[in-house]
Design a protein around this nucleic acid. Structure first.
Lengths: 314, 314
DNA sequence: CAATACATCGTACGATTAGGCAATAAATTA
DNA sequence: TAATTTATTGCCTAATCGTACGATGTATTG
């Protein structure tokens, strides 16, 4: 056995130990098919005890780990599958399809999510004099990386804080900074640094995405948005798509339709009003696009969902 | 013979008489194959005693009449042929191919050109309370119309002024206003009014064209130009093309290459400098496009032209 | 200095939009 | 249950706009 192989062996076994500890911690705080917002702001824990169908979900800027099980994320034509040995970073808000592909009663999928704040990342880059990214080109806003022991340990310490709530205000930010630092210098650090470096194309696109996220119900002028990002219309398109796998309009449409669905489902709003609320000016157009996205026209889709929920509840 | 027919007969014969008078006047001031800028500013007279090949020419905003002979104007894929019974209005600067198709020693092509000033047109529209145009859609910046007797008479009086130079400062503007008025209320008045009504799409495009005409050697941002015209990039394209039969870039290219040709021919500038002067940043690109437009690379084209001129001169 | 790779930009094309109207489904009432 | 009203969805037209693609210009590499 070579030294290299020995190191890997040791590393791997340490990793497994750390993952085991993480599983225990997650299990202490969450129950089956449970999602918990913890006392550490931005830190979420969850477990789920069976595979799911793909479902629409919005990823926020965050880093996601699973201590057990596996998930599949669909972004445009790309597929990202991650498990206990791979983390996933989303550097912007991204509409995706998410599916738990590996989970069971005996071995539920157990996950940790830590939301990332771009300002923190930028601050850390300045503070630690990390080099500006080489390439100007913008790439996908989602990336997979290999889980390392120090990273796992940091997460472990973060979760351990939940037992010592008084330490959270002081220690949580420190540990979060450590995690971010480890990501920045890790294999996918370049990506994160691109997003965070002010004025870069990635950063400009990220700003545009933030704007859309807030103002999706307003009517959208791509030309203006491009001007804001100091790019030509077509260049803006190019970079937007390379980051989100969606055209700006498709992105806005996703936001609009998902919000409309939420309004009808949770706030019991009728189709026409929901359509209007999210920025559509004609109900017929809304109906057509809703149908295209969710597979059924508004009312029928909502009825389906209600029946499904009732069935699960009973 | 119906009254209608009689009126037409009378009208036609009067028209012929008027055209005869116009021919005499033009002949008094111009010689064979001669172009005269008259003492009336904006008024040009010319005659040409043989048909020509099509040649590149820039039309300014103007109205063109021929008292004898015929001309053909090529604008993009459109062809405009006009003779003694049809005038041609150009409402913006337009790069065209022009060809005299009917002319001979005994019956030379005899023409009158009066340049039009958009501000005068707008002023007249306000003063005379002419209605704003109905349609918003923009159309070709060139149009043919049927010559009428009053129009011919006005032109006759304008040319007659050349014999009474002291009256020009007072009478020329008045007669020009009459001509513009007749055009505005005539069959093609709608077109002219569109161009002149501030804020209309046609007017916005006309402004963009004016800008291009002056700043063709600067590098051009279509997005900015569109923003200036308060249109989206694509809408701007659409209207620009419907008015000029050219895309904005093609339009600019025409201006650049024609100016470069002039610089080389008249100012004896070398190719590389001419290229640079009109805004090209690489001589190779210039050469390629020059070749495409004039059928020969810069140096050879100029040599050809010089030989041609020498041949005609001798 | 040529050749090549790469990013950017212009623009033609096709998708999307508003707005109006017709058809249909659902709900309410006779 | 039938009739009437109301809410939703489907369809049309004309215009605008988004955007994929190909042309153009810039940087890089041998």
């Amino acid at each position: 056995m070579t030294n290299q192989a020995i190191r890997e062996e040791i590393g791997d076994s340490s990793l497994e130990v750390a993952l085991g500890a993480l599983r225990n911690s997650i299990a202490r705080w969450t129950d089956k098919s449970d999602l918990l917002e913890t006392a550490v702001s931005g830190l979420l824990l969850y477990q789920h005890d069976e595979p799911t169908q793909p479902r629409n979900a919005m990823y926020e800027p965050c880093i996601c780990l699973v201590a057990q099980g596996a998930k599949r994320v669909l972004l445009g034509d790309d597929t990202y599958v991650y498990d206990a040995h791979h983390y996933l970073i989303a550097s912007v808000h991204l509409p995706t399809m998410v599916q738990i592909v590996e989970a069971s009663r005996s071995k539920p999928c157990m996950g940790v999510v830590l939301k990332l704040d771009q300002r923190e990342i930028s601050q850390l880059m300045v503070d630690s004099n990390l080099p500006q990214p080489r390439a100007q080109q913008s790439s996908r806003g989602m990336v997979l990386g290999e889980v390392t022991l120090p990273l796992l340990n940091a997460f472990q310490r973060l979760i351990d804080l939940l037992d010592e709530q008084k330490d959270i205000p002081i220690l949580a930010p420190i540990i979060q900074r450590e995690i971010i630092y480890r990501l920045l210098v890790g294999e996918q650090g370049e990506r994160l640094r691109q997003i965070a470096s002010a004025g870069s194309q990635s950063n400009q696109i990220a700003r545009a995405i933030d704007w859309l996220k807030v103002n999706f119900s307003q009517s959208l002028s791509i030309d203006d948005l491009a001007a804001q990002a100091r790019m030509s219309t077509s260049t803006f398109h190019h970079h937007f798509r390379s980051m989100t796998a969606l055209s700006p309009l498709q992105y806005q449409k996703q936001l609009r339709l998902q919000e409309a669905r939420r309004l009808m489902l949770a706030e019991r709003m009728d189709a026409a009003n929901a359509a209007f609320q999210v920025g559509y000016e004609s109900p017929s157009q809304f109906s057509r696009e809703y149908n295209r996205m969710f597979g059924a026209p508004p009312l029928r889709d909502i009825t389906n969902l209600r029946q499904l929920a009732a069935g699960e509840g009973g």
